[in-house]
Design a protein around this nucleic acid. Structure first.
Length: 950
RNA sequence: AGGACUAUAGCUCAGUUGGUUAGAGCACUACCUUGACAUGGUAGGGGUCGGCAGUUCGAAUCUGCCUAGUCCUACCA
């Protein structure tokens, strides 16, 4: 093996070998296990969050593959409607100065496909670098031909089941992107704004009970008054009761609109009068429905004022109940300009009563960042209620379990109050809605135009036009678990791998994706008994990866880390360039550059994929956000290095030697028995931790075992055996055998976490351990063998460690050079101590670097520094070298501690309630501690007395 | 407004059903280039577990209140 561990030299070549040999494909043997990758945006690149989730999925996949399961990790990408279209539009504008409209729909779509081909392999390349063992042969895309079929099938069937409908509804309109978006794509942000109070004159000379000829309404959106079709008051409000059913004259437009009674109007708030704009406010829309108010749309697609309004009745049908004319001076005016103009006009008219500062929450489009406008448009909706019911039940019944469980509450609260889902988007990139219209506007839904004509007996003389809109990206992603497996065909893959086992994803897309996947899957997938199938049994919800300060990583903050930079390293200047180049807000570049230079003054060094993955696992306690810490990454790179060097040691001592491959007679030392026992316990622990989705604990267990037990103790204990001339050949063989076999097992144990280094080393170690095979990937995952746990050996090594640590401790405190061999006495131990001493003197001498060791029993000992191991004293004779003052101080400190401990324990044990209430084993344990502490105290006193004589 | 989560060593985090002297990594101190490894070894310092009450023989762990922070949902005409 190379002397130094260099991940870059092993990782990529192993991945290629694995992929070439088809190791990632399902084996088609054993019980099925499947995971669907959450499809990343095809034109995007992987960030740390992906690396985190994908590493978890890969560990689970590799673990189950090694368990002998027929394992599929399905890979694919998402077409990501708006996001992708925006990227290409921006590119088009920058490079050619054109808009998509300049190109036209088809040419623009060609451009996107081109861009997809060009940039699409970024993601797949990154996945390969992470070691993801996905089934590349069946890679899918949410807009490939198969998905196209699945989406059409779902749309048509939902339409026929009356679960999809089209209608003129108030939707969230993005005036920049010119499309409707769903509730989930709206971000509500706090904002400083104003509240305007306007006087609306009463019609026909009416007066309020206070004798005024107007009522006062308050609004944060004055411009919408052009679309007011009523004013609501509370029916119980004595101030306005008499006015209900009467009219006001809407200023500026002079529209006669009614005063209606509705509970939406709160007597306690404002003036108690609410202007109602059913076409531009969701609450008002509901009031309008209840009170039979017309809807007047005053905005065009840019949210600028129309020259002529669109008037609809309460059901959304065109109506001439009101004059559609709008004042000419506002025509074409942007909504925010119109706001100013209208306020000043009302002010001039003497109708502005008051303006107040006001904190409000405004809706913003999550992609465009502009204020969303509620707008009346024709859209397609999924009737979510009926789909949600079984989806709620599946989680209630535990058919689907969230990890951690608290996310179920979030899921339930959203699902139990679910709103219909607006699925049409006025975009070009996406699944075009399979609906056709004739000249009269009749709607025909079907898989193809031909099918539509046939089913509805429409011959070719009638021209049909397909709906221009496309479906929300999440509509197709919702079909991911079964669409990827070949549905609507009844494929073997579908039968084998559905339902899938676990979905690993972030909490931020529980509503967008997880909930909708559950609804769609349960509606379309049924098992043999016709029972709805769930898409997955577990939803493992991961936290977000944040930067070192706990801030969300974002390009505009300039704190984004690329997982590949963790792996390969990056020069400072390249990193600065990467973070500041191609920015949406170039003015931030300087700040980001400065920040980057400060945080990474040396750039980032290469750590390798294994170290990155291990770091991610170690931080993966469930459901918690992670603050990324470069120091942890370094620590785990060092861990990989440790494994590398341990393997070098093992190979140096075993390669070209007999390691017991052919069942020759061998003898196991205490150390061998101990490490084998600990290995069994470690295997059981890791097994449990993985099934509990506690990869953080599993990685910690591995780390501890490898570093703190195998390397620190076992390898050290193996040295005296291998080098001593007194050891028998059988014992040496036993040690070599154990060295390679434990290492080989640990490599398999660790492989799902750190696949590359384990494969590299395994290739050399496996033959020595009597194993054969082309790859560690297909070897059996280690399983605990209880019969190999030797309790006696476990106890003996604990004792051994205790003695060695005591001696090292004395060395440290007495400042004895580590190079100097020293004599040691053991005194006052019991028979068990004596046996252990006799059996293991060699180990102690070697690891504590002793010149001699002697059992004193109860005899007098020379002047010594002392440590206690259980009831036994470990003495290092100091022969006048002792620093009396220091030793007295040390003993006094020890005595203090012992006295405190005795006080605490006595208090406890003298408490009758404790003795009678606590379980017996706890009481026994405390009693043992007390007597231990008391004998320690006695011995310390004795030493103190002796040393004080000097 | 409702809800969830978080608060443990200087930093990043573990701590299973209440029963330890509260742990790890990094950082820190001292010593050590010993034939696997200085990306290392040995020893060590550092925490009244956010605060206050309560339940209990016993609380980092359970309950309540408070403080700080993060997030979600809804709404504020």
């Amino acid at each position: 093996m190379e002397k130094t561990y260099q991940p870059s030299e092993i990782e990529q070549s192993w991945y290629q070998t694995w992929e070439k040999n088809g190791y990632f494909k399902p084996s088609n043997e054993g019980p099925s296990y499947s995971i669907m990758i959450p499809p990343p945006n095809v034109t995007g690149s992987l960030h740390m969050g992906h690396a985190f989730q994908d590493s978890i999925m890969d560990a689970l996949t590799r673990y189950h593959r090694m368990k002998g399961h027929n394992t599929l990790w399905q890979v694919g990408t998402d077409h990501a409607g708006i996001a992708t279209q925006m990227v290409v539009e921006r590119k088009l504008a920058a490079e050619e100065g054109k808009t998509r409209h300049d190109l036209g729909r088809e040419a623009f779509l060609d451009k996107i496909w081109e861009w997809k081909e060009e940039s699409g392999d970024t993601i797949t390349r990154q996945l390969r670098r992470l070691g993801a063992s996905v089934d590349w042969e069946h890679e899918r895309f949410t807009m490939d031909d198969g998905f196209y079929k699945a989406v059409q099938e779902v749309f048509v069937r939902l339409y026929k089941d009356d679960l999809i409908y089209r209608g003129k509804r108030l939707v969230n309109w993005d005036p920049k992107l010119h499309t409707a978006i769903s509730d989930l794509e709206v971000e509500n942000k706090d904002k400083k704004g104003h509240m305007w109070h306007f006087r609306y004159p009463l019609a026909n000379g009416l007066l309020t009970s206070e004798g005024k000829n107007y009522i006062v309404v308050a609004t944060t959106r004055p411009e919408t008054m052009l679309g007011d079709t009523g004013v609501a008051v509370n029916a119980k409000d004595p101030r306005y009761q008499d006015l209900i059913g009467k009219n006001i004259v809407l200023p500026i437009v002079n529209r006669l609109i009614p005063i209606v009674a509705d509970d939406h109007a709160d007597m306690e708030k404002g003036t108690g009068c609410v202007k109602i704009t059913p076409a531009h406010d969701f609450n008002d829309n509901l009031v309008g429905k209840r009170c039979n108010l017309a809807m007047i749309n005053i905005f065009d697609k840019n949210a600028a004022i129309l020259a002529e309004a669109e008037v609809y009745d309460v059901n959304g049908n065109p109506s001439d109940a009101f004059d559609a004319a709008l004042p000419k001076e506002f025509a074409g005016m942007d909504r925010f300009d119109a706001r100013k103009a209208i306020v000043s006009e009302l002010d001039e008219m003497g109708l502005l009563e008051e303006v107040k500062e006001h904190d409000l929450v405004a809706p913003y489009g999550d992609r465009s960042g502009v204020v969303i406008e509620p707008l009346l448009t024709d859209q397609w909706f999924v009737r979510a209620g009926p789909l949600a019911d079984p989806a709620i039940k599946a989680v209630e019944d535990g058919e689907i379990q969230f990890v951690p469980k608290q996310y179920e509450n979030m899921y339930f609260s959203w699902m139990r109050d679910i709103q219909d889902w607006c699925i049409s988007r006025q975009l070009w990139w996406g699944h075009r809605i399979p609906a056709w219209y004739d000249a009269e506007g009749n709607i025909y839904v079907g898989r193809t135009e031909a099918e539509v004509r046939k089913e509805n007996n429409i011959d070719d003389s009638v021209s049909l036009k397909q709906d221009d809109d496309v479906l929300d990206t999440w509509f197709s992603s919702a079909l991911w678990t079964f669409g990827t497996l070949g549905w609507p065909e009844a494929t073997e893959r579908l039968k084998t791998f559905h339902p899938t086992d676990v979905l690993v994803t972030g909490f931020d897309i529980i509503f967008f994706w997880v909930a909708r996947m559950i609804m769609m899957t349960m509606h379309f997938m049924k098992d043999e008994d016709g029972k709805p199938q769930v898409p997955f049994k577990y939803v493992y919800v991961t936290g977000l990866i944040r930067d070192e300060n706990g801030d969300k990583m974002s390009k505009s903050k300039g704190n984004v880390l690329d997982p590949l930079d963790m792996i390969d390293g990056i020069e400072l200047e390249t990193l600065v360039e990467k973070r500041t180049g191609n920015m949406m807000q170039p003015q931030l570049a300087e700040k980001i550059a400065k920040r980057t230079r400060k945080a990474f003054s040396e750039g980032i060094s290469a750590h390798g994929t294994d170290a990155l993955r291990f770091t991610l696992f170690s931080l993966a306690s469930t459901g918690r956000d992670i603050n990324w810490d470069m120091k942890r990454l370094e620590g785990y790179r060092n861990f990989c290095n440790k494994i590398w060097n341990a393997a070098r040691y093992v190979l140096m001592n075993t390669e070209d030697q007999n390691c017991g491959q052919n069942d020759e007679a061998f003898e196991l030392s205490l150390a061998d028995k101990w490490i084998i026992s600990r290995l069994q316990q470690t295997e059981a622990a890791i097994e449990k931790q993985i099934t509990d989705f506690r990869l953080d604990l599993a990685s910690q267990t591995l780390y501890d075992f490898i570093w703190n037990e195998y390397c620190d103790w076992y390898l050290e204990l193996s040295k005296p055996i291998l080098t001593s001339e007194q050891s028998s050949d059988a014992l040496k063989l036993g040690t070599r055998r154990t060295l390679v076999r434990v290492l080989e097992t640990v490599l398999r144990l660790a492989h799902p976490f750190i696949p590359f280094i384990t494969e590299e080393i395994w290739q050399r170690v496996a033959p020595l351990a009597g194993k054969s095979g082309d790859t560690i990937m297909n070897q059996a995952y280690p399983v605990q063998d209880v019969s190999k746990i030797d309790e006696l050996a476990l106890g003996d090594v604990e004792w051994l460690k205790g003695v060695i640590l005591a001696i090292r401790n004395i060395r440290g405190e007495m400042d004895i050079s580590p190079a100097k061999a020293i004599p040691v006495f053991l005194r006052a131990g019991n028979a068990e101590d004596k046996r252990r001493f006799e059996d293991n003197a060699g180990f102690i001498s070697s690891l504590a670097k002793l010149e001699s060791m002697q059992w004193l029993g109860q005899q007098e000992a020379p002047m010594s520094a002392t440590q206690l191991v259980g009831g036994m004293e470990v003495l290092v004779p100091m022969a006048g070298l002792i620093n009396v003052e220091a030793e007295v101080a040390r003993l006094n400190k020890e005595l203090d501690k012992a006295a405190k401990e005795i006080g605490r324990l006595e208090g406890k044990l003298n408490n009758e309630k404790f003795v009678s209430n606590a379980p017996d084993d706890v009481v026994v344990k405390e009693k043992a501690k007390l007597s231990g502490a008391q004998s320690q105290q006695a011995k310390l006193k004795e030493q103190l007395a002796k040393i004080s004589e000097l």
